[in-house]
Design a protein around this nucleic acid. Structure first.
Length: 245
DNA sequence: CCGGTTGTTCAGCG
DNA sequence: GCGCTGAACAACCG
């Protein structure tokens, strides 16, 4: 379910509850959810994969992790982790992390790191990458401090588009390649968003979960690479490794 | 029915 | 304190 673009869709869908008071709170979260009763939602925000429900003096952070899901004005058999009831409907969150944030969001989040934000700052991303020259590109695209909202699908698709082998180090890319990688990540995230809204995301996957490279017609390599050891699909022919040591 | 996964955190260890 | 590893969490699909 949840890479950054999916959280943006969630944020859009809950807008009818912005400014509304919470009339009932249920769910199996261990957090003190009673606190939310009679509170008015001031805004919904997001940072990368994190969904933020903002109140006057605190924020609820929802992270869907790998298996989390939500339903709006619907229920299913599973017990919700957190359920918020409003006069005009309800939001159910399942299998997610729920956390109260007490500090101002500006002190917690670097909005410029969110690949989907209007505050996204590609130059800041470049500076961060240049400070971690030995970082593998496959790991860089999963590092939330640099590319908040990017996940394993975005990683595989961006590396394919950029014709970069996942085991390249940042220091082995020239500045043009580095800037192109940064721009391509944001650009693919918005393609992801558009396709996801149209329920056609998978149809557009070129590398992720694919077996044959659409450019070369040879078999994709499939391996668990980098410090994150996430599933990586790549073409050993057209995704180039610039420094094989 | 089992294996696998669009993710993160934490304990334990060297 | 750091980096690394493994475990834990947990739901749905094929």
């Amino acid at each position: 379910m949840p890479e950054g673009p999916s959280i943006l869709i969630l944020k859009e869908l809950v807008q009818p509850f912005c400014g509304k008071k919470i009339l009932e709170v249920t769910g199996n979260t261990k957090q003190s959810k009673e606190r939310l009763l009679n509170c008015t939602v001031r805004s919904f925000k997001s940072w990368g994969k994190q969904f933020l429900i903002c109140f006057d003096d605190f924020t609820v952070r929802i992270h869907l992790l790998l298996f989390g899901s939500y339903l709006i004005n619907e229920t299913k058999a599973a017990q919700p982790r957190l359920s918020l009831h409003f006069e005009n409907g309800l939001i159910n969150f399942y299998a997610c992390s729920v956390k109260f944030l007490e500090d101002p969001l500006d002190s917690i989040y670097d909005w410029e790191a969110d690949i989907l934000s209007q505050h996204w700052n590609p130059l800041a991303a470049k500076v961060k990458l240049l400070k971690t020259p030995s970082l593998l590109v496959c790991d860089a695209l999963l590092t939330q401090d640099i590319f908040a909202g990017s996940g394993n699908i975005i990683k595989n698709e961006v590396l394919f588009r950029e014709r970069l082998h996942p085991l390249n180090k940042i220091e082995d890319l020239n500045v043009v390649q580095l800037e192109s990688l940064i721009d391509a990540t944001r650009s693919y995230a918005f393609d992801f968003l558009k396709w996801k809204k149209n329920f056609e995301l998978k149809k557009h996957w070129q590398a992720h979960n694919r077996t044959i490279c659409p450019r070369c017609n040879i078999a994709f390599k499939r391996a668990y690479l980098g410090k994150f050891k996430r599933r990586t699909f790549y073409c050993s022919n057209c995704q180039i490794l610039y420094n094989e040591q």
